[in-house]
Measured scan of single mutants.
Amino acid sequence: RCGYYVEKKKRFCRMVVAAGKRFCGEHA
């Protein structure tokens, strides 16, 4: 899952990502 920290939401993104990727499409 995406490891991007969403500052405005004060939590991690947690969106599912493709195999081998660290971030989702929105945060890549």
Rank of each mutant, 00 (worst) to 15 (best):
K10N: 11
Y4P: 01
F12W: 07
F23G: 01
E7I: 02
K9I: 15
A28T: 14
M15A: 09
E26K: 03
F12H: 03
E26M: 07
G25A: 07
E26A: 10
F23D: 01
G25S: 08
C24S: 01
G20S: 10
K10A: 09
K10C: 01
A19Y: 03
R1F: 15
V17H: 04
R11T: 14
M15W: 05
Y4C: 01
C24R: 00
V17I: 01
R22I: 15
R22L: 10
A19V: 06
F23I: 00
E7D: 03
F23E: 04
C2V: 03
K8A: 13
R11D: 13
C2R: 02
F12R: 03
H27R: 08
H27A: 05
K9F: 15
K9R: 08
V17E: 04
R11K: 14
F12K: 09
E26H: 06
E26F: 12
A19P: 08
G3N: 12
F23M: 05
K21F: 01
E26S: 06
C24D: 13
K9L: 15
Y4F: 10
R1S: 14
K8D: 12
G25Q: 06
C2S: 00
K9C: 13
Y5H: 02
K21G: 11
K10R: 11
E26C: 11
R11W: 02
V16A: 05
K9T: 13
Y5K: 07
E26P: 08
V6G: 02
Y5G: 01
A19D: 05
R1L: 15
C2L: 08
F23C: 06
H27D: 00
A28P: 02
R1A: 11
F12S: 07
C2W: 13
G25P: 10
V17P: 11
V16T: 10
R22G: 07
V6R: 06
K8M: 13
C2P: 00
V6A: 04
Y4G: 01
C24I: 12
K21V: 07
H27S: 00
G3T: 14
F12T: 04
E7F: 05
K21Q: 05
G3H: 03
E7C: 07
V6M: 06
R1H: 15
G20Y: 03
C24K: 00
K8C: 08
E26Q: 09
R1K: 15
A18N: 04
A18T: 14
F12V: 06
A18V: 03
K9G: 15
A18S: 11
V16S: 05
V17L: 09
E7Y: 05
R11H: 13
A19W: 02
R11F: 13
Y5R: 03
V17G: 02
G25C: 11
F12G: 09
C24A: 00
A19I: 04
M15Y: 02
K10H: 14
Y4S: 00
Y5N: 01
K10F: 06
K10Y: 10
G3A: 08
G3Y: 11
F12M: 15
K10L: 08
R1W: 05
A19K: 07
H27G: 00
V6Q: 14
A18F: 06
V16W: 06
R1V: 15
K8T: 12
Y4E: 13
Y5L: 11
E7G: 06
V16R: 09
F23K: 03
V17S: 06
F12Y: 13
A28M: 04
E7N: 08
R22Q: 06
K8P: 07
F12Q: 00
R11G: 09
Y5V: 07
F12A: 03
K10V: 05
C24E: 00
R22E: 12
A18Y: 03
M15N: 02
K8S: 14
A18E: 12
A19E: 14
Y5Q: 05
A19M: 03
R1D: 14
C24F: 04
C24L: 04
F12N: 12
A18D: 11
K9W: 15
F12I: 10
E26L: 08
V6T: 10
R22W: 10
K9S: 14
V6S: 14
Y5W: 12
V6W: 08
F23Y: 03
V6K: 05
G3D: 00
G25V: 09
G20M: 08
K10T: 02
H27T: 11
F23A: 03
F23R: 06
C2I: 10
G20P: 06
G25H: 06
K8W: 11
G25N: 05
A18C: 11
K10E: 12
V6N: 07
V16Q: 10
A19R: 07
G25I: 10
A28R: 02
C24M: 02
R1G: 13
Y5F: 15
H27P: 03
G20Q: 02
R1I: 14
E7T: 10
K8Y: 10
V16E: 13
G25W: 05
K10P: 01
E7V: 05
K8E: 12
Y5P: 04
Y4K: 02
R1M: 14
G3W: 11
V17M: 07
H27V: 07
